[in-house]
């Protein structure tokens, strides 16, 4: 399995705290990786560093072998837009856009004509169980439905990597379970790899691997043979 994304010796310091103290991490083709750790452990910082949102003080981030951590902001923005997808806990959908336009937005930002972008967005409604909700605005969707729309938006542009930051944090347990199953399955189906931050061991168990982070250091790996 080839490496898609890797972080080597990542160090990130804030004024009074060291968020990452030399972290090494790799994610392979179609692999899903859960990053776990207590609050303040540096797990979100690691995700943001791998996604090119935060620049590390030391170390390197490589995407398919190419170093990206020293890229300029415009290039990184384009990378995040085109080759990465994001699912956050909540609030990533534009409240005034209907679901189909929320999903189509990354394509339109890449220059795909609106009709084509919306048509491609509509293809996601069936597989994600969102039929009939194309014209609903985020506020008219349930939490689980909104997260499925967010998953579709993260995947619509065929990214290499999907980053998910506590994607089930705002959902009840059964909805969270359903959403994370869908997220890992669809990501794999699309040929993308998944990097997910969570504090929930049940959620993490859906991933191929779990990376335990504490005080900015990797404490250990767990390997699953297959997602449940």
């Amino acid at each position: 399995m080839g490496t898609v994304l890797s972080g080597l010796g990542l160090v990130k310091k804030y004024a009074s705290a060291t968020a990452l103290a030399g972290v090494d991490v790799e994610v392979g083709e179609r692999e899903s990786l859960a990053i776990m750790g207590p609050s303040g452990s540096g797990k979100s910082t690691l995700l943001h560093t791998l996604a090119g949102i935060i620049r590390p003080d030391e170390g390197q981030v490589l995407l398919r072998g190419e170093r990206i951590d020293h890229w300029g902001e415009n290039r990184l923005s384009a990378l995040r837009r085109g080759r990465f997808g994001f699912v956050f806990q909540s609030g990533q959908l534009l409240p005034e856009l209907p679901a189909e336009e929320n999903i189509a937005l990354p394509l339109m930002l890449e220059g795909v004509p609106r009709k084509q972008a919306v048509a491609r967005a509509r293809r996601w409604f069936g597989p994600l169980g969102l039929e009939g909700l194309e014209q609903r605005r985020p506020g008219q969707l349930s939490g689980g439905q909104a997260q499925r729309v967010a998953i579709a938006r993260a995947l619509v542009a065929d990214p290499d990597v999907v980053f998910a930051d506590e994607p089930t944090g705002a959902l009840d347990q059964s909805t969270g379970e359903e959403v994370v199953r869908l997220l890992t399955f669809v990501t794999r189906e699309q040929g993308a790899c998944l990097v997910m931050v969570t504090h929930d061991a049940d959620v993490a168990a859906h991933c191929d691997r779990i990376l335990q982070v504490r005080d900015g250091r990797v404490q250990g790996h767990s390997q699953y043979t297959a997602a449940p």
């Binding site: 996604a51 990378l79 995040r80 085109g82 997808g85 994001f86 990533q92 937005l105």
Partner: peptide
């Protein structure tokens, strides 16, 4: 600001 922030994180120029 929250929506704007999320969109920027996701690469929206």
């Amino acid at each position: 600001r929250r929506v704007y922030g999320r969109l920027r994180l996701a690469g929206t120029p």
